[in-house]
Design a protein around this nucleic acid. Sequence first.
RNA 1: GGGGCGUUAGCUCAGUCGGUAGAGCAGUUGGCUUUUAACCAAUUGGUCGUGCGUUCAAGUCGCACACGCCCCA
Length: 496
Amino acid sequence: MIEENQDENKLIAQRREKLTAIRAKRVAFPNGFIKEDTSTDLIEKYETKTKEELEGLAVTAAIAGRIIRMRGPFVVLQDGSGQMQIYLNNKSYSDEQAEEIKAFDLGDIIGVHGEIFKTGKGELTLRAGTFELLTKSLRPLPDKHKGLTDTEMRYRQRYVDLIVNEESRKIFQTRSRIMRLIRQYFESLDFMEVETPMMQVIPGGATARPFITHHNALDQEMYLRVAPELFLKRLVVGGFERVFELNRNFRNEGLSTRHNPEFTMLEFYQAYARYQDLMDLTEDLFRKIAIEIGGSSKVSFQGSEYDFAEPFARLSVTDSIKKYCSVVDDAAFASTESVVALANSLDVHFDENWSKGKVLMEIFDQKVEAQIDQPTFITEYPIEVSPLARRNEQNPEITDRFELIIGGRELANGFSELNDPEDQAERFKEQVAQKDSGDSEAMHFDHDYVTALEYGMPPTAGEGIGIDRLVMLFTDSASIKDVLLFPHMRVQQDPT
RNA sequence: GGGGCGUUAGCUCAGUCGGUAGAGCAGUUGGCUUUUAACCAAUUGGUCGUGCGUUCAAGUCGCACACGCCCCA
C-alpha cells in the first residue's frame, strides 16, 4: 500500500492513473505472452539480409522487453540479450489500440508479435502485428542519454542502474564469466568444489575481526566466518586432496574502495604441492582469465597495463623494502631494535610492543605495497604474522608464503601449509597471548583443528584469491562497489 | 578517526556580487508517421539534503548533522 504521507510526484501519479484505467478494462499484469525470440538472435540472423530479401522471406517473430526509446512510430525494446526496434504506427490500429499505444511510457514492458523488415535507413525492425502491455512501469527512467550517474543512486537502486547503464550490465556479466572460468579451471585440474560452514563457533583462518551472532536454540554465540581455511584443511586431512571453495567471507572492518564487509573469496588446497607450485598456478590462471575475458594477455587497469603472458616478479618482503624505501644495508633487518629504528626513520606508525615481524610488515603495508604496480609475488613473510603457514627450513623466522600484489593491491595470499600439529598448537598459543593483550584480530585456539592435524595432514599448499579485487582488475573498476551488485551502504535516515 | 569536495525539477546539470529559481531530457496537449540523441508548436513541474544562525533579504554566508565521493591514518 502507498503510505499516506508519501508525497508522490506528478509523473508517478500520471502513470498510476494509466494503470488504474488498465485495471478497469482487463488483467493489468498478464503473464500469457509467449516470447519466442531474443533481439540479439534476430539481429544476428537477419541483419545481413537486404530489405527486398526480408520482404520475400516474410519472417515472423515474437519478442518482449522494456521500452527504452520512443521515436514517433519507432519504439526500441530492450530485452535480456540486447535491443531491437519495433514499428508501432498508431494510425494502423483501431481507435482503442491507438489510445493504448499513446499511453505507453518509457520503462513499460510490452510483448510484440509481427514481421521483420528493414526501414528506409536500413535498420532491422519488427513491425508490430499484435502487441500487448505486459507490465506498466510506474516510475520514470533516468535521463535517456546520460543514464544514472549519481554513484549513490546507482548502488542503492542497482536495478535502475542495470536498466539504463550498459557498462554496468557488462561488469556483472564479466563477473559471472570469471566465476565460471575459475570453476572450470579448478575442475579441469581435478579439484572438488565444497561448501564449509559460514557460521562458526571459532572464527578461524585469518587475522580479522568477525561479526558475532547468536544461535537461539543452542543459546550459543556464533561468528560469521572470516575465512574457510581451517575447514578446507580438515577436508585434506580427510583425504580430499584437491578442494576449493568459492564463496562469501565476512569481516567486521571499515568500508573503502577496496573493502566491503562481505566479500567473495576463492580458497583452494592441493596436497603434495608447495607454495612455488601455487605461484605458477596463479600466473597460469590470471593469464587464462585475461585471454578469455579480454581476448589478450594484456590488461589495462586504472592507467597501467599488465601483460599476463610475462612471469610475475618475485621479491622477498625485505628485498621489497630495500627496493622501494632505499634501504641499502641488510643489517637494518637483523634485530628487533634495527627494524624498529628503520620503521621510525621511515615515519611508519606502529605499536611499541609489537614483534619484529609485525613491525616489518607494517613497514611493507605503509610504505611498499601501494608502490608495487606490476604483478609481483612477495615472499618470505615473518612467522609472527603467518600462524597457519609452514616454517621455512633454512630460516625459522620466516614462512613458505607469498602474496600477489597488482596495482598496489593484494590480490592473493598463499603458502605451504603448516602440518606439524605441535608447532600449530604453539602458534595458536601465541595468537591467544596476543588476543589477551588486546589484539582484537588475533586468532582463537582451535583444538579440534589441532586434533585433525594430529591425525596427519599430507604436505599441502593452499591459497586464497580475492574475487572482488580480481573482477575489479579485469573490468578496470576503481571501486569494489562497482563490482558488487548490492554493495553495503549506510541506511538513509528517515526525514521525519 | 582526520581533511577536502559534493547534495538544486523524475534524470543530467547551470545558478554571477546575498535581491523572490533556469536549461536539456523525461512528462502533458496538438501535429507529423520508415525515424536514428526523430522532428515542429505550446505547456506542466522545485521542502534548493536536514536543522539552527547571521541579515531588511539566504540556493548563495556561518555552524551542526545526515548521506555520498576522494585522500590520509
